[in-house]
């Protein structure tokens, strides 16, 4: 009768193996290593600063990041004055004032990052009908997260001969369906890094992926360090509970 179970197990394994072919979920994204990988991993503040520079100078011309406020940027190690200056470059609508009029004022620390377009329709009309998605949660909202973002940035290739790319679209090996409206952005020396890091296209793609991961998971550093303390505490407590359990049950036998 034992053979009945092994037969079923073998059948189940066979079924799993047969079905292991990847479902139609877009191209496979290679796993990369990041500074925040693993139990002890934390963000690299210098990398986040570089990524923010890329976001500010390149991405934010089309993409919004509405969930992140300027005050949050202190987590990147930027001084409050520096962030105030960055914020003041943009204007936000405020009001109504005493006369009942809406007015524009420079953005403050408490404002969320000012989007490039006043609304989605304006964004579409400025981008050939395609809406550049908000980047606040991009690293959580795509399978592969930062790996995907990096692969997408570096995935612009000439299309294979049998593929016709639609008008206004670009061929990208990482994008599901391979045709993306966003034109390629990464190129060597697209930005100049203040910390002297060589701005190769791949470096820039890594940095922006890191920054977007921070934007999506700003709590990561705190989460991991609190997690470590919690785990140590729980292991100690559980070991004590186990010892006590052994002691209490000992007088039964």
């Amino acid at each position: 009768m034992r053979s009945l179970l092994s037969l079923a197990l073998a059948a189940a394994v066979g079924v799993f193996a047969a079905g292991a072919a990847p479902a139609s979920e877009g191209p496979a994204i290679p796993k990369r290593t990041w500074s925040w990988d693993g139990v002890f991993g934390q963000y690299d503040v210098k990398q986040l600063q570089r990524g923010f520079l890329v976001f500010k100078d390149v991405c934010s011309n089309c993409h919004a990041m509405k969930l992140v406020a300027y005050r949050n940027l202190t987590a990147l190690g930027l001084s409050e004055d520096a962030i105030k200056k960055i914020a003041a470059e943009k204007e936000v609508m405020d009001g109504p004032n005493d006369a009942g009029d809406m007015f524009k004022r420079p953005a403050r620390l408490s404002d969320r990052i000012v989007p490039p377009f006043p609304n989605d329709n304006a964004a579409r009309s400025a981008n050939n009908g395609a809406l550049p998605p908000d980047l606040s949660l991009m690293a959580k909202a795509r399978k592969g997260g930062p790996d995907y973002i990096h692969a997408l940035m570096m995935g612009y290739k000439d299309p294979p001969k049998d593929v016709t790319v639609a008008d206004g679209m670009n061929y990208n090996t990482a994008f599901p369906g391979n045709q993306i409206a966003m034109p390629p952005q990464m190129q060597d020396d697209l930005v100049t890094y203040a910390d002297g890091t060589k701005a190769t296209a791949d470096q820039i793609a890594q940095d922006i992926a890191a920054f977007l991961n921070w934007a999506a998971e700003p709590e990561l550093n705190e989460r991991k360090s609190l997690g470590l303390k919690t785990m140590i505490f729980l292991v100690v407590l559980t070991a004590m509970l186990y010892a006590l359990k052994r002691k209490i049950w000992a007088d039964l036998h």
Binding site: V236, L237, M240, L241, A243, L244
Partner: peptide, 14 residues
Amino acid sequence: SRRDFLLYATSAVG
């Protein structure tokens, strides 16, 4: 007494 000590210590940590 060893058991009592363990009980008090575990209770305190918990």
